[in-house]
Design a protein around this nucleic acid. Structure first.
Lengths: 339, 339
DNA sequence: TTGAAAGCGGTACCAC
DNA sequence: GTGGTACCGCTTTCAA
């Protein structure tokens, strides 16, 4: 039982292939009555367009977009961020009948290799990029590739790519002022890898806010988003002569690990140590004490960035957009010092 | 700058399209010298096969396989299982130049709709299915669809689909005997949704093991894998007149939530309550006390199931396989009762 | 409005 | 061994 083609429909309706194509795509060139007849027959036959054929036809689209993710494989599985993002991207895409290709890669070079292959083999119509780096080679590389891209991140270093960006300065200041108001003087931020642009801008915001609040002992240290790195870093910090009284993490996972280390070292949260997470996945409300976190709507970011890419693909001029600022959600892991 | 086609190569080499195709695909029909010349030119031109064109040609493959996941969107983001599985599937696929399409769906019907669309539009060559249900409509539905599928799960109810299955009876017995040996009499298992086949077989194994150990007050209750459900269920259980002294969860997330609830209720783990998780993602080692868990190599399951699908797609007769049994990893969340 | 036909970029068959 | 060609299923142009 072969898949029906427009030729089958044409024969059944006694018209030509071209007429069927017009009817099916809702464009002028056939009379209303013919269109209806064709549509009925197509439906009866259970016809659906062959995607490869559509893509091959001049000007045709592949009907898929791609996403490559290149964080350490170990952290990937439990990093809530990505699946939430994928979820949002998906929601937007499936409304348009577009599919999502997902790849994990080792590093930026491998990621670029995937884009090059996708472009060369015509696997996807465009891509969504994440985790912009300082001097990221991708924006420039995408410039010469016939592969439209939008970026979640930026706008600095976006190299002209349309991007959906966030001003983390707002929530970062909120966090610092909140902690400072509760009497914390030694706040250390456990950040993501230094090479990420968003890490960088958060670091700058943190530094400024801390300085303005006169928190001279505050600083940022870097880890790689994994729970292991979060644990190790936290252990080291809490073992210092003058340990921090508050820790601000760049993702939920490291904050969770940090909470574990505090427990393991017999340091009580929040009376001896305050902890702030970032992203606010459901994990934060699952542990005790629950984690104070900066919340952002990752699913909606996914939706928006997908919709931007869609617009680019349909030839529209797309402007970069800013997301709503993240919001601080105070919970049990933060409080005044009681020592 | 148009993408180069085999016609361009043919012209440059002064041969026919057919010859180029043979040369490029490493099959007989061209002399060795011609082949080399063609390969060089193809390389110089930066040629790569057009995937749509390849797929369209008779007998052509799309070069992509699909995966649909239909767990509640909220749990998806933080459920480590899926990204790990995807990771494994990917590793295997990318070695073959095959891409992965990912979709999230509301329920089995929506999932089937995606398969039907993928088949009708020729979007993928085959699919990997997970979360087999009791009286699952999918195996039978896939039978009439021209879309090869392999199943992670089964083998009961697999309906003839090649599957990669696990005997959870082994680790389940290990868990029960371990807890019983430490003096636990009231063990409650907080399972996944009743409709899953793997839930069912674990329930049966749990029941038998408990019975054999004379643990008459042991039972299974169901939740939906989310942290919220894990919390709610745990809270209810621990508030009973004769609360359980050990809880065995069907995934890490619910176990984590359960640990949180115990803390919130002032119940000490493990002296008053033992907790066992299932899957053993990195989360288990991140919390305090660390979670005893049944460990299974989800990434490797992904690799294997992808390789089975690959074999099916290349026309081989594929037998179902069994995975290594999960292993109990005792950690801090389990111990003898000290009351 | 409708029908015929030319691509799109490969694969594979068939003469030579 | 090699070149020519039909075909895959759809879109779109061009005549009728």
């Amino acid at each position: 039982m072969r898949r029906p083609t427009i030729m089958d429909i044409a024969k059944a309706a006694g018209v030509s292939k071209g007429a069927v194509s017009y009817a099916l795509n809702g464009r002028p060139g056939v009379s209303e009555s013919t269109r209806e007849r064709i549509l009925t027959i197509a439906n009866d036959l259970g016809w659906a367009p062959s995607n490869p054929a559509r893509a091959l036809a001049p000007g045709g689209r592949v009907g898929a977009i791609g996403m490559v993710v290149d964080r350490p494989a170990r952290s990937l599985g439990i990093e809530p961020f990505f699946m939430q993002l994928v979820s949002g991207v998906e929601t937007e895409l499936s409304a348009q009948g577009v599919d999502l290709m997902l790849q994990v890669a080792e590093d930026v070079e491998a990621e670029l290799a995937v884009y090059r292959r996708w472009a060369a083999e015509r696997r996807v119509d465009g891509v969504v990029m994440v985790d912009l780096r300082v001097s990221d080679p991708r924006p420039e590389a995408m410039g010469v590739l016939p592969l439209p891209a939008v970026l979640l991140g930026g706008p600095e270093g976006a190299g002209g790519l349309p991007c959906l960006y966030t001003d983390d300065g707002v929530p970062m200041r909120e966090v610092v002022h909140y902690l400072a108001a509760m009497g914390h003087r030694r706040i250390v931020r456990v950040a993501g890898p230094e090479e990420f642009v968003h890490t960088h801008s958060r670091t700058e915001a943190f530094r400024q806010a801390a300085e303005r609040s006169g928190l001279l002992q505050s600083r940022t240290v870097h880890a790689d988003y994994t729970g292991e790195a979060g644990s190790r870093t936290t252990r080291r910090l809490l073992a210092e002569a003058e340990p921090p009284t508050a820790l601000v993490y760049d993702n939920d996972l490291m904050a969770l690990a940090g909470l574990g280390v505090a427990a393991e070292m017999g340091i009580e949260v929040p009376s001896q140590l305050s902890i702030v997470a970032w992203d606010d996945s459901a994990l934060c409300q699952m542990v005790r004490p629950s984690l104070t976190a900066v919340s952002r709507d990752v699913v909606s970011h996914g939706r928006r960035v997908a919709s931007m890419l869609n617009a680019v693909l349909s030839g529209q001029q797309v402007e970069s957009e800013e997301t709503l600022a993240g919001e601080l959600r105070p919970r049990g892991s933060t409080g005044p010092l009681t020592v």
